[in-house]
Design a protein around this nucleic acid. Sequence first.
DNA 1: TATGAATGAGCCTTCATTCAT
DNA 2: CATGAATGAAGGCTCATTCAT
Lengths: 189, 189, 189, 189
Amino acid sequence: MPESVGVRQVQAQRTRSGVLRAAAAVFVEQGVQAPVRDIADRAGVGVGTVYRNFPTRADLVTAVYRHQIDACAALAPRLLQESASPFTALALWTDAFVDFLVTKHGLGAALGSGDPGLENLHALMLDTLVPACATLLDACAADDGLRPGVTAYTLMRAIGNLCITGPDYDQADAKRMVALLLTGCRSTA
Amino acid sequence: MPESVGVRQVQAQRTRSGVLRAAAAVFVEQGVQAPVRDIADRAGVGVGTVYRNFPTRADLVTAVYRHQIDACAALAPRLLQESASPFTALALWTDAFVDFLVTKHGLGAALGSGDPGLENLHALMLDTLVPACATLLDACAADDGLRPGVTAYTLMRAIGNLCITGPDYDQADAKRMVALLLTGCRSTA
Amino acid sequence: MPESVGVRQVQAQRTRSGVLRAAAAVFVEQGVQAPVRDIADRAGVGVGTVYRNFPTRADLVTAVYRHQIDACAALAPRLLQESASPFTALALWTDAFVDFLVTKHGLGAALGSGDPGLENLHALMLDTLVPACATLLDACAADDGLRPGVTAYTLMRAIGNLCITGPDYDQADAKRMVALLLTGCRSTA
Amino acid sequence: MPESVGVRQVQAQRTRSGVLRAAAAVFVEQGVQAPVRDIADRAGVGVGTVYRNFPTRADLVTAVYRHQIDACAALAPRLLQESASPFTALALWTDAFVDFLVTKHGLGAALGSGDPGLENLHALMLDTLVPACATLLDACAADDGLRPGVTAYTLMRAIGNLCITGPDYDQADAKRMVALLLTGCRSTA
DNA sequence: TATGAATGAGCCTTCATTCAT
DNA sequence: CATGAATGAAGGCTCATTCAT
């Protein structure tokens, strides 16, 4: 009965998507350390289903952000082409990156925690965002000049950290600080 | 019996110091959310002793960092006098601040978490470090010029965030990023 | 799979009942303040299971006694109809109430403790037993006459207190004292 | 140096009295299960001093109430002589007993708990209050007539229980219930 | 494959009790 | 004798994780 198998697969995929959507919502509200039970409840599934689809929390975190990460990476070449200068492109891209990060409570801290379970996400960012960022930085280096010692990875970690917000340090503050950091990255020619 | 009382007090002080030392060490290894039991074990005391001396975790965290915070604050006016320029003083001071923060895993995140129990520490930093930093920023503003929107509090939060290190983002990286942020804070005039 | 779900639900219900039975037994032996762990051990389950079924101690206490309370309340109208006089009915009903209370070590004290967590139980008794008792008292007042100032609530509190037994004051003593109290409640007219 | 010994003894007695006073106050506020530390703090002494003078909590409870118990016992013969009838004397005496008990939060429950550590207090009451009460009951039996099965001990336990007050059952309620109980004890002959 | 009941480790916190000074 | 710092047992509660159905 190939059809029934297909139906099952479709259903399984639906379940998986539901968990992802729920996890994304819960992560925004409670941070990436939210109890698994909360995610399962929000998705309307049992905790076992969450574990079946995402054996570790890192798997779930990674899956939740994969699409956004990919989209963010894909933005880089587009901005580079459309912008007046490489540095403008970089600024616009980091803006998008900040928008991505700023609602992910605890993600920056989690990334910086060295938690071995988050290597998947770490690798994902290395594989997609870092090259995207590097493209922009290379263009800046060729065009405007860039201070030495500014690697794509380090810059993204720094930006990620600057996006850890709180009661007296909000998204606007984060954007301002990131902008200043980027300004500092330009060579003074 | 003043002597014996004195002996007891000295011993108590020794115990308290031991707890503080143990807590400082455990905080470096595990972050400020480390189990109280671990701290007690490291100090070679019972958990009750930790609670006797520091009823809340925030009391302990605050006590651990109070001296370093005070020392850091006291550094500001000295640097301002000794340095060639206010901006140099600011750079040197942030260097010291980074040195203070960089081993305090989770402190930055904890400060930014809005945890009500850590308001003591928050207040301590507001009361001591922010004014110290503000002095330097004011001098910079008067001398070199400073981009608008850079408040002492926001800058320190940003620096605090930049000091959340990890496997591929170490103290040197943090210092470099902080330096770039400061550069970005200078008015280009 | 409706069957398997049914099986699970049945098993869950069995577990819940087991916890209730265990709690009832432990309450008799140790009082309603017995450690949750003891109840879990007696039921042969983990503490988590107790908490899953009864998030607070009050939930557990209430559940343990709900059936008996309901049964006791339901007894009142029956006795009123079957008995020769309202006062006889009241006497029989309080006998049943004493039988209910006398093995519940600490329940009377707990009810009187003002513990906010036991408001559920307090409310349960107010909502079920007090009206039942009031019915009987009203009938007595109409028929035999009753001394003033005897409210159902106060009377039940008094009876509850009289049922706190001990080594030299047992159930028979409690019953005798309650009987004397009721006698005292009759108007001598 | 006999004087210095005397001075020490006086001082020791002073300390002991201070602890008793403090314990009495704390018992009124928190009940007889109050933390030893609270009593020590209130007395301005160390916990060790409390333990030295009163090795067990029961020792302390007993000592605290001994004077009041003795006074209450001494009241019985006086009332018997001064009152118009034995039953009036009994009523007045129980009133005094209620006044004694009603502020002793948890004492009634403690007495009824069967706690072996409170046997001292138990014995104290058996030795002093029960005979006093028995005198009154005997007089009532001779004069008014008294229902059978009312022993001094049981009656006092019952009264003790009736004095366990709470938010909706206060001292006035307790007095009213005790009065009704006593009324019930009279033979209707 | 999905479920969610059950488990139990782990952390928190309080307080009775001891004992060196 | 008095002190109170230190101890650690005891109990509460939460959640990650497993597994029978």
